[in-house]
Design a protein around this nucleic acid. Structure first.
Length: 283
DNA sequence: CTTATGACCTGCAAGC
DNA sequence: TGCTTGCAGGTCATAA
């Protein structure tokens, strides 16, 4: 489950099971899901067993579970990753790649399953800095729902770029947490064509765009994220409801809710962009 | 430095 | 029915 709202839904779901829990056992079922870990899967397992976990954190689409000592279990869901909280010995989940058994704060045991169809996601144990941020996450910009997020600074950096405004929104080193769905939704709300160069976006419209980004992420979070199929689910395997509220993403062939023109899908940078041909013209 | 492109994977839906 | 093709919520390394 990929973008910020979906990852935050997962983090919230993990809080009761993992905060102050202790790792009892770890089993790597598919080596490929251990990514950017400094060592093999046996080393990964040994790095976790017996250790105490702290409250799960998130920046953008990166999730991590701080460990006692200056390390953290970093989780990235990639395109199709899931973190499922199950009873120990529950029915198997499809595409389960890594299993952790933990004893939670209240003394109950849970089986945490990392499931991932496409294996673009993964886990690693990494060192953290003085702020508790893993080295793997250090290069990721603050996300729009972080207290320290600075919209004016992001707009200033956007406005000196020649690249398209959509590429900027997807650049996790400029602003994190946005992916293809929420980029298209925010651009629709802001009535901007995705190919508009950053330097052609006025300061006022840039700030408006970021306000739309924050609003669409907040609303999606309240709805439990966007799910089109069973790939994108919370820790209990349940889907979110924000797909009903999409105005542009995946709406090609349907009328624009604002002006009635037919939403189009266009190939761009090895993926799809959705826009209203009337409200989001290239100027 | 910035920017663009392909690699990494599995599986589903649509079209023939 | 079976085959092929296109498509999918991301990130990173590499090249220009």
């Amino acid at each position: 489950m990929p973008e910020l709202p979906e990852v935050e839904v997962v983090r919230l779901g993990l809080l009761p099971a993992l905060t102050d829990a202790r790792v009892l056992s770890v089993e790597v079922l598919d080596e490929r899901s251990i990514r950017r870990h400094d060592g093999d899967s046996a080393h990964f397992e040994a790095s976790l067993v017996g250790r105490r976990m702290r409250e799960p954190r998130r920046r953008g689409k990166f999730l991590w579970v701080p460990l006692e000592g200056a390390e953290a279990l970093v989780v990235h869901l990639g395109m199709s990753g899931q973190m499922l909280v199950r009873e120990v010995g529950a029915m198997p989940d499809r595409h389960a790649r890594i299993r952790l058994v933990v004893e939670s704060r209240d003394g109950r045991e849970y089986e945490i399953r990392f499931a991932d169809q496409r294996i673009f996601g993964g886990m690693a144990v990494r060192a953290v800095d003085g702020e508790g941020v893993p080295d793997q996450v250090a290069h990721i910009a603050l996300d729009p729902i972080d207290d320290a997020f600075d919209p004016a600074a992001v707009v200033a950096r956007l406005r000196v770029r020649s690249q398209s405004v959509k590429a900027a929104l997807l650049d996790q080193q400029l602003i994190s947490g946005i992916g293809n769905i929420y980029a298209d939704e925010a651009l629709w709300r802001a009535r901007l064509h995705y190919l508009t160069p950053g330097k052609r976006v006025s300061e006022r419209r840039g700030l408006e765009l970021l306000a739309h980004v924050q609003d669409v992420l907040d609303r999606a979070l309240v709805e439990g994220g966007t799910s089109f199929d069973t790939q994108y689910v919370n820790v209990n395997g349940e889907s979110g409801y924000f797909a009903h509220s999409l105005n542009a993403y995946g709406q090609h062939g349907k009328p624009c809710p604002r002006c009635g023109a037919i939403i189009v899908r266009e190939k761009w940078s090895n993926r799809s962009s959705h826009r209203c041909p009337k409200c989001q013209r290239r100027r």
